[in-house]
Computed example of a mutant assay.
Amino acid sequence: MPGDNSRPRLVVGLTGGIASGKTAVSDRFAQKGVTVVDTDQLAREIVEPDTAGFEAIRARFGPSVVRADGRLDRQALRDRVFSAPEERAALEAITHPLIRDRVRTCVASAASAYAVVVVPLLVEAGWDKDVDRVLVVDVPESLQRSRLMERDDVDETGARRMIAAQTPRARRLEAADDVIRNTSDLGALDEAVQRLHEKYQQLAQQHG
């Protein structure tokens, strides 16, 4: 997306580990009038019934991943690809190009000086090459575990397994241009987002 004139002057990729607070951060950017594109939401849209994504998944994975009501059985699909790298790669080969196309469309129609694209697997999927800056929402793993245990009602073993399934925290931080340490209260988070909002507005002007 960098170098594409039909988009805001700056595109920020927002990522972070599970339960780090990505949504809390992206919501605050949206409240400031910034266009926020959520790839998780787009991932749901591109596999709705009668879409190209849905038909491609059904053709590749068969009727076992389709519910009786004709919609995608997300849990069955997750179970199918979770421990099978080749199956996961096949799913990503279908969904990632479709999501990228939707992101480009959403970003191109943005009215704000910069746009934020939320990509949970930004580093793993190579999306860091598609944005101008990478913003990582970071928390220590101990805080991730406690938040997961409370949010998802899982035990510590389950929380550790969920964290271990993601890219290491150090790798995300290595890819970061900017970092929000989401370890304090909401007031501190508001201030951190405001500082970056001002910074990104200035950078967008420079890009223009």
Rank of each mutant, 00 (worst) to 15 (best):
H96I: 02
E86W: 04
C106R: 15
T95Q: 14
A115G: 07
P97Y: 10
A93K: 08
A108I: 08
C106Y: 07
V107L: 05
L91A: 07
V116T: 07
A108M: 10
E87L: 05
V118Y: 02
V103I: 14
V118A: 13
R104T: 06
V117N: 10
A90L: 07
S109A: 14
A111R: 13
R104F: 04
A90H: 06
V117L: 14
T95M: 14
R104N: 12
R102F: 03
T105M: 02
R102G: 04
H96N: 02
V118P: 03
H96K: 09
R102V: 01
E86I: 00
V119C: 01
E87V: 01
L121N: 06
A110L: 11
L91T: 05
Y114E: 09
A113V: 13
S112N: 12
L121C: 09
L121E: 03
A111P: 00
V107C: 10
I94F: 03
L98A: 08
L121G: 08
Y114I: 09
S112Q: 12
I99H: 02
T105F: 02
A89M: 07
S112F: 09
R102D: 06
A113C: 13
E92H: 01
A115D: 10
V118K: 10
R100C: 00
T105L: 08
A113T: 14
A113Q: 14
E92F: 03
A115Q: 12
S109V: 12
L91E: 04
I94C: 00
C106P: 00
E87I: 00
A90Y: 06
Y114N: 11
A93W: 00
A115I: 08
A108N: 12
R104V: 05
A108F: 08
A93Q: 10
E92I: 03
A115M: 07
A110V: 11
H96C: 01
E92R: 03
V119M: 10
S109I: 10
R88T: 06
P120F: 05
S109N: 13
A108V: 09
V117M: 14
V117W: 13
A110E: 10
T95E: 13
V118I: 09
Y114M: 09
P97R: 06
A93I: 06
R102C: 05
Y114R: 11
S112A: 12
E87C: 06
I94E: 02
D101W: 01
A110C: 10
R88G: 01
R100Q: 14
L121R: 03
R88A: 01
P97Q: 09
A111E: 13
R102M: 08
L121T: 09
L98K: 07
E92N: 11
V118C: 07
A113P: 10
V118T: 12
A89K: 13
S109Y: 05
V103A: 01
A89R: 15
A89L: 06
R104Y: 06
L121K: 02
A111K: 13
A115S: 14
A90T: 11
